[in-house]
Design a protein around this nucleic acid. Structure first.
Length: 897
DNA sequence: AAGCCGTGGATCATT
DNA sequence: TCCACGGCTT
């Protein structure tokens, strides 16, 4: 919600004069929050309010434990949002607080929107009276607009997007006389973001970080960046968190004001909080008398250099002991903080999220109630068991086990499928989807809207798209380039920004020569210099310079025109409807003409987007409030109108659910992603596993997991081995699909009914031979292994497996979760009936893929011809080719001669 | 101002 | 392999 035009709370539901609210609001006759609250008070224990009646006992506990710190561990599909919204409704209805005394934070705008809507439904009222429900960033903006001067800004400051930031940093790098190719601005922008996520100001960054960029001038550059932001009266996304923290630290009186104000604090997706967000929360949640002997805010953290201070001018003091509210009643000191999250769904560590925040909650907030929501309402028992079994392989969990009370005897097991390569994978998934779409015996069909393909990396999407286009299957991709990131939208926004904020130099620079007006680099540079020298905005500098002889006639006339345009539009700002003004700006600036004259394929779409932009502006009351909205809300609603399969990454699937979910690409290197393992080690692997857990728990009824044995990565075909995660699935709940008839993949099966599981703490999850009298598809596998691919896979695997058993296991390599049953292994190995999946053993026991070749082997490569193996590194061979010289190739591409 | 070429990079991606 | 970007040419 935009509230730039109304920087203060809507008075409507606000607490009278900021005084505490011991009593429910008595104003506002009829309906509404107040009336509900009154009703609730009339009969305190008389009856259960209907909003809690549908809750299960744990949920109800989470809703009704309003006082003191509470951690709600909400497993996937356990009604997390319901608890949060009901809890708020409960607080309101029982008169514990006014809407404006509740601080509720989410990570995404989508989550905030959903909560607003749902609270609205519960309390039967639009939730305009919840002014402090929003994302960390939007609440940060609100705080900063109120207290801008305390943060060194003016209250009409600009929020820069990533694009602006990069351009600004680039200028700074060049100004430092550094090579902007050697030191990419984008990279530095990311570093700054990382620092701000940790709450580091320029003074606080680790020496190593400072040295690693810009010839060791990292710190100076960061400082220069902050200075520049200040002069521009601007801040970046990180500042929206960091500046309020700094402000609270430096102005305890202001902080105390908010301590008095916020009676209840709620946090969604707590496992995703980063260090800065954590500090922010701690500041707001801590009460003067709370005992916090080891608060990290006081620099108690080992790695928190300089106490994690944020200052740009000198290390800010450690949080002073907060006093002055001394006489408040003890109950006033309770930290009524409720954090809701799921440590098992923490998948944003790479973005600075600290799972540790949630793991540490009970230590941080002594006496915290921890409530576990484990009753799952989403998935079948098979899917839940699969998810639980998988995630049990992680260490350092708070520990939850999802269960369901609804068992469906007809529920299908989780299916694992194998395909030869990714193309076949796409084809097979497409086929399955088409099959599901056909009406079943009872004439029901599966909607495409109820199916999703969740990939690990976005490059996987293309193959599915290609295939679906061929099939004429509707699909929608979530997470592509976003609306507000499109060039034409950014240009348009830049025009608006210069009109609304004449000092916005970055916006000015962006469009001063768009469309082309003959204002080239030299003119801009001149403007820039003048503006800097005089300390005025570039627009002002431009206004001055056109009155002089400094510019040549052409650019001078052109620039004069630009200045006149902007001055005119600025005058219209207050007395012209903003959508109308927008159209005028597009017309008069020549911006629409620019695209009309553009004959490229995208041009019509861009014009369409501009119209869409104007349409979306209608919802806002002013240009300013629209700008505020866009700065914070970078996404737009997806139109879910037509029936279509959804394709998206696992990351963007968090929080969603589908009847049927496809999880392709479960191969070592892709999932878990190699880079995660390289950079994150064990914790990287665990985060990947949580990602797998998120994927599995998205499915309500049907789950299909796929892996292929050949995948093209960076243009090279690589032979791959099944993901270790496959092996971590519980055999009792998983079936391996038989090879599909039409796509000639290879299949496999679980050994069922071995009853084993004894040696394995998790229960064996063993892909094994089918030749042991199990039921699954008896006898139907033997005819599908005629493809060359299968043969090759077998050959490679056998060699690798032998090597593996011969050396690695003997060398004490960890074999997680494997029952040691040699007889089974012996039976399976080498037999034709041993399914590919046994390749799993390799993934399990070794981190790399041993090659089937040895140094000195004579080999043949299709492209390079014959050669000798010179070195082996995993599955990568260095080969001296007779003709082509030395090359590094993957072992899958050569054959022994 | 448009087009060609060489280079580098290539998980996830909110605000 | 393939794309995007920057620098260069025309």
């Amino acid at each position: 919600m935009p509230d730039m035009s109304d920087p203060f709370d809507l008075p409507f539901f606000d607490e009278p004069g900021g005084e505490p609210a011991p009593n429910p609001p008595a104003r506002k006759a009829g309906g509404g929050i107040a009336a509900r609250a009154m009703a609730a008070r009339r009969g305190p224990q008389a009856q259960t309010p209907d909003y809690v009646s549908g809750l299960n006992p744990e949920q109800r506990l989470a809703v009704e434990t309003t006082e003191g710190p509470v951690l709600v561990l909400a497993g996937a599909g356990t009604g997390k949002t319901r608890v949060l919204t009901t809890r708020i409704a409960h607080i309101l209805a029982t008169g514990r607080a006014y809407p404006s005394q509740i601080l509720a934070v989410t990570f995404t705008n989508k989550a905030a929107r959903e909560m607003k809507t749902r609270i609205g439904v519960l309390v039967g009222e639009a939730v305009e009276g919840m002014p402090w429900l929003g994302t960390f960033h939007s609440i940060g903006v609100k705080l900063l607009r109120r207290h801008a001067e305390l943060a060194g800004l003016r209250s009409n400051f600009t929020i820069l997007d990533t694009d602006d930031v990069i351009r600004l940093i680039k200028q700074l790098i060049q100004a430092e006389g550094l090579d902007d190719k050697r030191w990419p601005a984008r990279q530095f922008a990311m570093m700054i973001d990382g620092w701000k996520n940790k709450g580091y100001g320029p003074k606080d960054i680790p020496e190593g970080d400072a040295r690693s960029f810009a010839n060791g001038k990292g710190r100076e550059l960061y400082q220069a960046y902050q200075d520049r932001l200040k002069t521009l009266n601007a801040c970046d996304f990180g500042d929206l968190l960091c500046l309020p923290i700094r402000m609270f630290r430096e102005h305890p009186d202001v902080l105390a004001e908010y301590h008095r104000k916020f009676k209840y604090i709620l946090v969604d997706e707590y496992q995703d909080t980063n260090t800065a967000q954590y500090m922010w929360l701690r500041l707001l949640a801590q009460r003067p008398k709370a005992e916090r002997p080891t608060s990290p805010l006081r620099g108690g953290r080992a790695e928190g250099a300089g106490g994690g201070s944020l200052g740009t001018e000198g290390p800010p003091p450690l949080t002073p002991p907060l006093q002055g509210e001394g006489d408040a009643a003890a109950s006033e000191n309770r930290v009524n903080l409720c954090c809701v999250g799921d440590d098992d769904q923490s998948i944003y560590g790479w973005r600075g999220a600290e799972v540790d925040n949630i793991l540490r909650f009970e230590k941080d907030f002594p006496g915290a109630a921890v409530i576990r929501l484990e009753r799952n309402y989403r998935s079948t028992a098979h899917i839940l068991a699969t998810a639980s079994h998988l995630i049990a392989h992680n260490e350092g969990r708070l520990g939850k086990t999802l269960f369901t009370e609804h068992s469906d005897p007809d529920a299908s097991k989780v299916m694992v499928h194998a395909a030869w390569d990714s193309e076949e994978e796409a084809r097979a998934v497409g086929e399955t989807i088409e099959q599901l779409q056909r009406p079943d015996r009872e004439g029901r069909r599966h909607n495409l809207n109820d199916m999703a393909i969740l990939v690990r990396a976005s490059f996987q999407m293309r193959e599915f798209e290609d295939r679906f286009v061929t099939l004429g299957l509707n699909y929608r991709v979530i997470g592509g380039p976003r609306f507000y990131e499109r060039q034409e939208i950014r240009d348009a926004m830049a025009y608006f920004r210069v009109v609304a904020q004449p000092a916005d130099d970055l916006a000015f620079e962006r469009i001063v020569n768009t469309p082309k007006r003959g204002l080239g680099e030299t003119t801009i540079r001149q403007l820039h210099d003048i503006a800097r020298a005089r300390g005025v905005p570039m627009l002002t500098a431009a206004e001055d310079i056109v009155e002089t002889e400094e510019l040549k006639a052409k650019p001078r006339a052109s620039l004069r025109n630009v200045v006149e345009n902007f001055r005119r539009w600025q005058k219209m700002l207050d007395n012209t409807p903003h959508t109308e003004l927008a159209e005028i700006i597009f017309e008069e600036s020549g911006y629409t003409d620019m695209w009309k004259n553009d004959r490229s394929a995208e041009a019509p779409g861009r014009l369409e987007n501009l119209k869409e932009l104007i349409r979306s502006m209608e919802e806002y009351e002013s240009l300013r409030s629209f700008l505020e909205h866009v700065a914070l809300v970078m996404d737009t609603e997806q139109n879910a109108e037509q029936d279509a399969v959804t394709i998206m990454t696992l990351h963007s699937a968090k929080g969603l659910e589908y009847e049927t979910v496809f999880l392709p690409g479960w191969e070592e290197g892709l999932f878990p992603h190699q880079r995660s393992l390289d950079e994150g080690g064990r914790s990287g692997l665990e985060e990947e596993r949580r990602l797998a857990y998120v994927g599995v728990t998205r499915a309500k009824k049907n789950l299909h997991i796929w892996f292929v044995s050949n995948r093209r990565i960076h243009g090279l075909w690589q032979s791959t081995i099944p993901s270790r995660f496959l092996d971590e699935l519980p055999e009792a709940h998983v079936d391996v699909a038989e090879a599909g008839s039409s796509y000639g993949g290879y299949g496999g099966a679980f050994a069922q009914g071995r009853g084993g599981n004894r040696q394995n703490p998790y229960g064996a999850s063993r892909f094994d031979s089918v030749g042991s009298g199990n039921n699954a598809g008896s006898g139907s596998f033997s005819n599908t292994y005629a493809t060359p691919g299968w043969a090759r896979a077998q050959a490679n695997k056998t060699a690798a497996t032998d090597r593996n058993w011969g050396t690695r296991s003997g060398a004490g390599v960890e074999r997680i979760g494997y029952g040691e049953t040699d007889s089974q292994r012996g039976a399976g190995r080498g037999s034709v009936k041993t399914r590919t999946i046994e390749g799993e053993l390799i993934a399990k026991s070794t981190m790399d893929t041993p090659s089937a070749f040895s140094v000195g082997d004579r080999v043949f490569h299709q492209k390079f011809g014959n050669g000798n193996v010179a070195a082996i590194e995993g599955n990568k061979l260095t080969i001296d080719f007779d003709k082509a010289g030395q090359k590094r190739v993957l072992d899958g591409f050569v054959t022994g001669v």
